[in-house]
Simulated scan of single mutants.
Amino acid sequence: MNQVIDNHGRPINYLRLAVTDRCNLRCFYCMPEEGIKYVPKPHLLTWEEMERVIRILVRMGVDKVRITGGEPFVRRGIMEFLEELSQIEGLQQINITTNGVLTAPLVPDLKRIGIKSVNLSLDSLDRQRFFDITRRDEFPNVWQTFEALQAHNISTKINTVVMSGKNTDDIIPMAELTRHSPVSVRFIEEMPFNGDGAHEYQEFWNYRRILDELKKAYPGIYKLPDPPASTSYNYQIPGHQGTIGIIAAFSRTFCGTCNRLRLTPQGQFRTCLYDDGVFNIRDLIRQGLNDETLQTYIYEALQNRAKDGFEAEARRKVGVVSESMSTIGG
């Protein structure tokens, strides 16, 4: 089949696959301190089911998969799964989002498998602030992962959620990482996916305010061209090796070029981060449906896709956005 186009004329070539809802951190903006009620293992997609879905999507034009979670490296069998994915003809990129706690020893194998890029979630370079945000004292392990990725020349993006009263003092230190390292530091607007819907924004830092903060420290910062379907506005600080990105995740200014699908660990197929699932592909697989029928379900969902995150949120069947990002796929 040729490249699938949705009902708004957007080519779909990118899947974000959450392989688990479990995580070894407790970031307050992602889940409550006591954690969330995890999905029982039999309710999760198996590795074989996930591989089957990816093969179907590749035939429909998807050529990029991002493996995420929860924290993908807490699920047993992840490295073998990545090996299998690397053999799928037509799948051009396998990228990973990780919190870095368990990742450093695996970096050489990730390089060997052919992982193109890693997004490293890191909200502070200060060990105490890192602990305050994540509720875990794991900063040294995360930093080892950063150093290992640089040593093995794996393209690295650092994802930093900007939170009032928590880590706004880290904006400039994080930007300074781009001075001597060819990394992309991406500042992300905080979103309401913390597992209980109760978080209040004391003082919302939107993408314009984040940019103003950077301009104060770096008056020469300038805009770069944004790649097709980019979620970030991209910038360069003169003399720095790396780049800066700002993601308007809550303002949702990038929906018009969205090329992404999401698949949750329990098989919910999402055509937008802000919807609550359009069908469950796990259930369809376990009913014995063949690949052609599964492909029809996917195609029909893409022909009824919301034009943006606001429309997707309005269509939700179960009220306001309150899920943990860990259950959706960060």
Rank of each mutant, 00 (worst) to 15 (best):
M31V: 12
G61E: 13
I96K: 12
M31W: 02
G9M: 12
P72G: 05
E84K: 15
T97M: 08
T20C: 13
M31I: 03
V58H: 03
L57I: 04
R55L: 11
E89P: 01
M31H: 04
I12V: 08
G35M: 08
N24T: 01
R76N: 02
I78L: 15
I54N: 01
Y14D: 09
T68D: 14
I36H: 00
N24D: 15
R59F: 00
M50S: 14
E34Q: 15
T68C: 12
V53E: 06
Q92M: 13
P42Y: 11
M60Q: 14
R10F: 03
V53D: 04
L25R: 09
I67A: 03
V74S: 01
Q87I: 01
R22D: 04
H43T: 07
V74H: 00
I36C: 05
D21K: 01
C23Y: 01
Y29G: 13
G69C: 03
V39P: 06
V74A: 12
E83W: 14
L45S: 10
E84G: 05
E51W: 07
G70F: 04
V4T: 15
M31L: 15
I36L: 03
E71W: 00
R52Q: 14
L85P: 09
L82E: 08
P42F: 05
I67R: 00
R55V: 04
G61N: 13
R76C: 02
L91I: 04
H43M: 15
I94W: 09
L45D: 07
I36Y: 00
V101P: 11
M79F: 14
R66N: 10
Q93L: 12
M31A: 05
R16W: 09
E80P: 12
I96A: 10
L85Y: 03
